[in-house]
């Protein structure tokens, strides 16, 4: 391990810097987890859920700063609570899905800013959490993020066919006796975990891009759901690695740069798909 780290330290450019190595690792984990969950959200017409959960996670970060706790765990707690709250409002029919998301999104951002100010957080810290930064991934976080990413991928793998049935046609899934309410809750919780994984590199306000853009690109070229997941993960990891590298050289916010590379990948794929179709 030490030998590996020494070898890594001698790598050229950003690859040789330990904070960039952590950023790349976190970016890879987020790059795989975000589009995997994002695919199900996009197909359920719940793309904005990622956005709402990002905002809720921000309140968790600010709460953790105030209490002196680990911001990742704070974000995780807030996002999971938010996901269950949104799912509850949505499934009980007390608020349409998009309104339920909007309620939690605005509450999350508002409460987050209040808590962050009370905690005495400076604008620089907040900017990093909101828009992503190369240095927000702290040394102790890497293992936690990797574990959360593994949980997301394992959860989708374990319930793949049930989730597929759920998103294609919820009523038929319910009629045939699949545990639809639990699947919806599980999907919401995995989305919350994903948002927290992605938050470190892309920031809470831009999390949705990583969960939506690669998926919409993949949907244009893939035939089955399996291929869609695979292509989306490929587009997303490529965009994250390119975005992080560009952010390092251009000295711009990492999340913002990643969103731009994601959008560029989407535009390229769309153009290629359009040419193939015509």
């Amino acid at each position: 391990m030490d030998g590996l780290l020494q070898a890594a330290a001698s790598l050229p450019g950003p690859l040789g810097l330990d904070f960039m190595q952590r950023a790349y690792l976190a970016g890879l984990v987020a790059g795989v987890a975000a589009p995997v969950i994002g695919t199900f959200l996009v197909l359920r017409r719940l793309s904005l859920l990622a956005d709402g959960l990002g905002h809720a996670a921000f309140a968790g970060v600010a709460g953790a700063l105030l209490l002196g706790a680990n911001p990742v765990l704070g974000a995780l707690a807030a996002a999971v609570l938010g996901s269950l709250g949104i799912e509850r409002l949505r499934s009980a029919g007390r608020a349409p899905g998009d309104a339920a998301v909007a309620i939690y999104a605005s509450l999350g951002l508002g409460a987050g800013l209040v808590l962050a100010r009370l905690a005495g957080a400076g604008n620089i810290d907040l900017f990093g959490y909101l828009f992503g930064s190369l240095v927000t991934v702290r040394p102790g976080d890497a293992a936690l993020l990797a574990a959360m990413g593994a949980l997301v991928v394992a959860g989708v793998a374990a319930f793949y066919k049930e989730l597929l049935a759920l998103v294609v046609d919820e009523e038929t899934a319910l009629a045939s006796g699949l545990p639809v309410a639990w699947l919806n809750r599980g999907l919401a919780v995995l989305a919350a975990v994903t948002v927290v994984v992605a938050m470190r590199v892309v920031g809470v306000l831009l999390v949705a891009a990583l969960m939506v853009l690669p998926v919409t690109a993949a949907l244009q070229v893939a035939r089955g759901l399996g291929r869609t997941l695979l292509y989306a993960a490929a587009f997303s990891t490529a965009s994250v690695l390119a975005g992080l590298t560009l952010a390092y050289y251009l000295d711009v916010p990492a999340g913002a740069m990643i969103v731009v590379t994601c959008a560029a990948a989407w535009a390229l794929v769309s153009a290629a798909a359009g040419r193939r179709a015509s």
Binding site: L43, K161, E162, L164, A165, V167, V168, D169, T172, S176, G177, L178, L219, A222, R223, G224, L225, R227, T228
Partner: peptide, 18 residues
């Protein structure tokens, strides 16, 4: 939702899930 990325075989297989 017919825009879904599934094949005809995928859909029929869903009948077997339970």
């Amino acid at each position: 939702d017919w825009d879904f990325p599934v094949t005809a075989l995928d859909v029929v297989l869903m009948g077997r899930y339970r």
